[in-house]
Amino acid sequence: MVNTLAPETTAPATRRPQRTATGRDRARRRQSAVAYLFLAPALLFFAAFLVLPLGFALLLSTSRWAGFDLSDIRPVGAANFTGLFADGSTFLAPVLTNTLLFALGTVALALAGSVLVATCIDKLRLQGLWRTLYFLPMVTTVVAVGNVWKYMYEPGGLVNGVLNALGLGSVAFLQDPHTALPAVVVVQAWASAGSAVLVLTAGLKSVPGTYYEAAALDGAGAVTVFWRITLPLLRPSLLFVCVTQFLTGLQSFALITVMTKGGPGNATAVAALEMYRQAFSYGDWGTASAAAFVLFVVVLVITLGQLWLFRRRGEDT
C-alpha cells in the first residue's frame, strides 16, 4: 500500500524539538479536539440513526400506538410479544418456520453448489472470468433478479419451457403453496452463490500445494483428497460463508416481496416480511417492533451457535 514512499531513516524523536510540558499538553488537547471533530459526523449519525431508533423500537415493542401523535403511545408491557406467540397467531408457524426453512435451504444449496464449483474452478484457467460470471447476480438489483425469475417460473417462461421440452408437465411454481417456498429458495441461492464461490476460491488459494503433492504420492484419490485435505483446510472460509449466508437468509425479504409478497396464502411469509407488513400494511407498530426484536434474537442465537459449533469441531481435530 505505502511502498511508494521511502521509509524515514531518522527516528522522529531525535528531530522533535524540545517542548515544554504545557506545550505538549496543549498539543495533546488540540489533537483530541481534532479527533472528535473528525468523528463528529459518524458519532452524531450513530446517535440519531442507531441509538435513538433502537430505543424508540424498544419503547414501541412494549406499547400500543396508532402512529400519529407521539403523546398517544400507551405502555402494554409484554402484550405485543405474547401476542406473537398466542394461539391462532401465524408468527411461530408458518412465519418463523418459513424463515428457518428459507435460510436453511438457501445456505444448503448455495454452500453445496459453491464448494463444488470453487474446487473445480481452482483447477481451471481463466479463474477470474468464471468467478465474474458467478458473481453477476450479486451486483444486480433484487427487483431485476426477482422479476426475471418470476417470469421464468410462469407457464410460458423458461423453466416450464425446459420442463415441457423434456416431456414433463408445467408446474405453477409460485402459485402452488407446495412449490412456492422451494422456488424462491432456489432464486436466493442462485443470487448469493457468487460471493460464496469468491470466498471459497480465495480460501483454496491459501491451501499449500505441497499437501496435494504429498497426497498424490500416497496414492490418495480425488474424493479422499477433497474430504481429507480440501474441506478441513477450508474450514475458516466455510465458517465465514455459512455465517454470512445464514444471516442474509434469516433477514432478507426483498426478494420475496418482489416475487410472491409472502403468498400464496402464507406459503412464503418470512419473519422480516411479517414485521414489515405489521408495520406498513396494518399500522401495528408495536407488534412489528416486537417481531423485529424476536427475529434479532433468533439471528443472534443461530450465529453464535454456528461459531460455537465450528470452534468445538476445530478443537476436536
Binding site: 483530541s32 479527533a35 433502537l54 424508540f56 433477514q251 414489515y276 417492533s289 439471528v299
Partner: peptide, 27 residues
Amino acid sequence: LRFPGRDLVFRLVLTTMMFPPFLFFVP
C-alpha cells in the same frame, strides 16, 4: 490520533455492525 475514549469509540463502531437492517425500518 491519540485522544481519550478512542478504544471505546472504536468498540462502538464495531458494535454498530452487529445490528441487522430490519431492526431499523420501522423506527
